[in-house]
Design a protein around this nucleic acid. Sequence first.
DNA 1: AACCAGGTGCGGT
DNA 2: ACCGCACATGGT
Length: 279
Amino acid sequence: MNIEYLNGSLEITGVELDPQLTLMDSAQVFHWSRIDDIFYGTVCGRRAKLTPLPDGFRLDGVAEKDITFWRHYFDLDRDYRAVMESCKQYPHAYRAMQLLPGMRVLNQPAWEATIAFILSANNNVARIRQLVGKLIGLCGENGGIPSPEQLGQIDEATLRGIGCGYRAPFLVKTTKCVLDGLDLDTLRSLPYDEAHKRLLLLPGVGDKVADCIQLFGLGQGEAFPVDVWVERLMVRWFLPDAHGKKEIRAKAQEMFGVNAGIIQQSLFHCARLSLISLE
DNA sequence: AACCAGGTGCGGT
DNA sequence: ACCGCACATGGT
């Protein structure tokens, strides 16, 4: 992998990273937009324009002090080939990673992942995108997910007004928890189980959303979100006798360890895109 | 027009 | 601890 920085542009080449797959199709992040194969997004107030290249991408609008930030966001320092090799004893997992070589798991800010995945519950990807976009539209025009302070200014009725539905009070209450002093980033250094328990205290956060926050927002690779798709594919491909999402998650963590989350992401997409048949 | 969406909270067994 | 149901809304 090669990284070059010049005049606000960060060029990353020699890396398997498919922006369409990771930013738009992956259902791990919902607020990047694509216009004519160029991607626009704002993360923690840093607005960037991403242009795909044949073997990587270029990021424009990058301040020199933010090079490390973006490098971490796109998880550039991880050897995905090694992750793939780590699951070679599980042919379906290995195959899933082979089929999606450009797949990566982004390191999002904990707060942004929390808001996005509370909105994701019992919702489809197209609508999650739309909803996150409307939420962003409520707070200025920098294009990023509102900060806790910004969201704290918005009442439940307004959130219902943009289509949040019954998730509106979850957003309000969780925002209040954070404004009252809960520091999501401190969960990063806690063991998986402990961070999970604390996340469950937030309104609108159950097992699945907590795992998404841990995987996408806290850098905890043992997290293994189990939704209906993952439940089905795990039973079909790995655990024919398992029943219940909790058991599936525990067994997957035993099998895949700290790479469980990355492998889950590949399995999930292979199933969703029908790259591997569930029958 | 039903049915589904990367579920969660709640009350009743 | 497990089970069933309500919950808003729009895409397919």
